[in-house]
Design a binder for these strands. Sequence first.
DNA 1: GGCAAGTTTTTTGTATCCAATCGATACCTT
DNA 2: AAGGTATCGATTGGATACAAAAAACTTGCC
Lengths: 230, 230
Amino acid sequence: MREQKQSTTTDAVYELLCRAIIEQALQPGMRLPEDTVGEQFGVSRTIVRHALVRLETMGLVVSRRNRGAFVAEPSIEEAQQIFQVRRCLETEVIRIGIETMSEEDFEQLDAHVRREQAIRGKDGPVSIRLSGEFHILLAQLSGNEVLARYVTEVVLRCSLIMAMYAKSHSSDCAVDEHSQIIEALRTANADLAVSLMEHHLGAVAERAAFKKAPDTVESILSRYGKELAH
Amino acid sequence: MREQKQSTTTDAVYELLCRAIIEQALQPGMRLPEDTVGEQFGVSRTIVRHALVRLETMGLVVSRRNRGAFVAEPSIEEAQQIFQVRRCLETEVIRIGIETMSEEDFEQLDAHVRREQAIRGKDGPVSIRLSGEFHILLAQLSGNEVLARYVTEVVLRCSLIMAMYAKSHSSDCAVDEHSQIIEALRTANADLAVSLMEHHLGAVAERAAFKKAPDTVESILSRYGKELAH
DNA sequence: GGCAAGTTTTTTGTATCCAATCGATACCTT
DNA sequence: AAGGTATCGATTGGATACAAAAAACTTGCC
């Protein structure tokens, strides 16, 4: 908000790729050749490359030397690690937010939840994205920008994980929980807010954990070594 | 350890710049022209640029469009935010580490502390770097790679902050505290370990907070608006 | 002497080009 | 026919070249 940070072409490509991955247009494991992406967006490989570097440091893509970039396929272990960090960070967001957030902030959150409710029932990528954006918004409103950046990263990676593993893309239950969290924050009920958030993330994680059984050869092999999968 | 991740030239330049910043060879606010850096390391601007992008996403450098990259000058507020996140992450490291760490891991930590003690008394950049590396090692041994990455980032940024603000570069008191933390982990005393870590980070943060008075014009201006300083 | 506008110079942003590396296919050997 | 090896193609890693923007300098005017 306070930094105008005039955006460059790289940022735009980065944003687009990011959304495309989160919304599953680009599916996990898919190759991202630099020149292919480049000519799609009408920019040179240089730009694409920078965007891919950023996406790689975020963990949304992995790149192998002289092989190129691929949309990340987080393993179960990696997913668990990400969820663990996310829980840690988001409870901190709650603790900070309860001290610092204003009514104006709460209204922003309310507005977001209404947007989520508007597409209630329509499962799919957009639902996942909106659900994630609630958490990102919450983190931003905490006022700690560093924290917000990390939350953004883990939420995006979680979105990818959800898209990969969740058997249903439904996020219905989550929306109500979002409202409850806002209310707990409003009433400055720290313990409740934290436990709500933990429960919420636990629920999200569980829906990811007990998903599609590893019924294909590929999915089994992918556990034992990504490098062989391609 | 388990990923060989053959390193590229970009990685090397990144590492070097990173160390140079942490050890204060490159001081906060200093410009980093791409071709200057490039010819120093004997590589082209392309490489330097990639390294700078990575350093920027880490928060060690800031870059302004068409102006170039500068070593970051974290403000007091930013520093506080970073310390807050760091405390949050490192207490999580302790909680995980106490469950998962083996005697072998503890020995690695011991070895590192011995290395720190070896240069005890010699204040300065190297001391700050080693002190930070203890925390990074600890995070890596926790087994959660995602957590370790974030801890690495905040520790590096803290090192920059210390270098900027701490009046003395001394890290003497820290070394003993490191040993105490290892012992608490060894004896699986979770509460003690967490409180030791919190105390340790509190002490570190305080030494940063009560530092060099803003005695130069630049340092004063930098508080009131970075964009005016240049 | 100071200020302002125009010009020069430096530096970044982007595109293109060359070389090195990896994977795949085809061929040769056993 | 199966396995190993060599060549070929595709794609990235890295360097150079060109364009645009900003900073610095100069010059003229008040």
